[in-house]
Design a protein around this nucleic acid. Structure first.
Length: 414
RNA sequence: GCGGGCGUAGCUCAGUUGGUUAGAGCGCCAGAUUGUGGAUCUGGAUGUCGUGGGUUCAAGUCCCAUCGCUCGCCCCA
């Protein structure tokens, strides 16, 4: 083992892994475009303030997971732990609030200082869509439908579950939160240490505790449903109605929550059993208060993020690399003509591999290893005839082709 | 931040109660085949046994520390 290690929790994306990522990204982008989302990219670091304000000072991400540093100018900067804050910032600083509604797709690296495990890295990648300026439930339906379409196109439809919940509007949520805190305070001495902590920071999370004792207490906790006001109820009914109309299956999960104040109404996660402990493959929800929290005008927003690594792991067979055509010169005299031929064919759109030395046998061996579909052998005989020998490397069949007819003859190998 | 498992060749791994030159398969390189790849055969190279310390006549093997990987908790994509 070399002492030269990649930084903990980071990974090199070598060609095979990169192809998996690219597959996920390409499918997601193509489908997001069908829904009218436009690709954008924001910087991978922002002023720390951007994330502190949007994520809240008590969230895990802000308290222990941010990669923050001071630059040479003395600015406090942070490597983005998620995409939404940067996009919201861009919306405000670019004056885009004039153009609402806006629909963005983006993908790229995110950074969180966490202990790595399966499906969890310190530098990881997400695809992400955000729908801004649509306050009505039709936005929620569209965003979920788009995510579902992407997961389906990737072939995961039968391995994922859409878990769905509503947090209601601000009024409903505040009322519920108050009731919940009151209830848990009464049982505080019996709660687990983790949950006592959560009682301060994020009481809704206690509902999702894995601790046995907590679960017994939770069983008698007040139900969110009883605190939803009429407006929240009908909002959610429109969302589920839309999903029903689109035949998108979902499971209501009352325990699915979000901690921060600006989250409201729809919260959802696509989960899978196939990835171990990190079962969430795509998660999102409505965040109507976020842009305002950052200092912009009140702007509705809803979106999701999905982990590319997790999706890439679920891909059944890695997309194969493109099969090249090998140009194989024989003898010194053929080197120059082969170089020119290779360039000409590349110009015509073929993937050409021109070996880097060795005799015919060596070059053929290398062509085979690269899974080349065909070899074009170019030696004295061929040059004299003004053609090349075309060998199909799957069948072994070989024929002479005149130089002028090459592009046409090679069409099947494109 | 907390807990469990694991570090031997490029990869996957074997290595007996501590015992002398550390092995296999795959891959790689060369040759059989200097104008023909895949299959076969023959030969070849490659290890700070993760790192540091300790115990011992002797450590890949036992002990301690450390680093890394991995799985889980927390949280999340």
């Amino acid at each position: 083992m070399s002492s030269l290690q990649p930084v903990r929790g980071t990974h090199d994306l070598l060609p095979e892994e990169m192809r998996r990522h690219r597959r996920v990204i390409d499918v997601a982008r193509a489908i997001a475009e069908r829904y009218g989302y436009h690709e954008v990219e924001t910087p991978i670091f922002e002023f720390s303030e951007v994330f502190q304000r949007t994520l809240g000072d008590t969230s895990d991400i802000v308290t222990k997971e941010m990669y923050s540093f001071t630059d040479r100018g003395g600015e406090r900067l942070t490597l983005r732990p998620e995409a939404t804050a940067g996009i919201a910032r861009a919306l405000i600083s670019g004056g885009l609030t004039q153009l609402l509604p806006l629909k963005f797709f983006c993908h790229g690296p995110m950074f969180r200082y966490e202990r790595p495990q399966k499906g969890r890295l310190r530098q990881f990648h997400q695809i992400d869509i955000e729908l801004l300026g649509v306050p009505g439930p039709e936005g929620d339906v569209e965003v979920i439908a788009c995510g579902y379409a992407i997961l389906t196109a990737l072939g995961f439809a039968d391995r994922i579950t859409l878990e769905l919940n509503t947090l209601g509007d601000g009024e409903s949520r505040r009322a519920y939160r108050t009731a919940l805190v009151e209830f848990f305070k009464a049982h505080e001495d019996r709660l687990s240490a983790d949950s006592r902590e959560r009682l301060e920071r994020n009481p809704l999370r206690i509902l999702d505790s894995k601790d046995e004792g907590d679960r017994r207490i939770v069983a008698d906790a007040p139900l969110f449903g009883d605190f939803l006001n009429e407006a929240s109820r009908s909002f959610f009914a429109t969302v589920t109605g839309g999903l029903d109309a689109l035949a998108i299956p979902y499971k209501l999960s009352p325990r699915l929550v979000r901690g921060l104040d600006y989250y409201c109404h729809t919260a959802f996660e696509f989960t899978t059993e196939t990835l171990g402990a990190q079962g969430t493959v795509m998660g999102g929800g409505r965040y109507d208060g976020l842009v305002e929290t950052m200092g912009g005008p009140a702007t509705a927003g809803i979106g999701w993020a999905a982990g590319i690594e997790r999706l890439a792991m679920m891909l059944d067979d890695p997309p194969p690399p493109r099969r090249p055509i090998a140009v194989v010169p024989v003898g010194e005299a053929a080197a120059r003509p082969a170089l020119k031929l290779a360039e000409r064919l590349r110009g015509a759109g073929f993937a050409i591999e021109l070996g880097y030395g060795g005799n015919l046998g060596k070059r053929m061996k290398r062509a085979n290893r690269l899974n080349a579909a065909a070899a074009l052998i170019l030696g004295e005989d061929e040059i004299a005839r003004g053609g090349v020998t075309l060998r199909d490397l799957d069948s072994g069949a070989q024929e002479q082709v005149a130089l002028g007819a090459l592009e046409e003859r090679l069409a099947p190998y494109r």
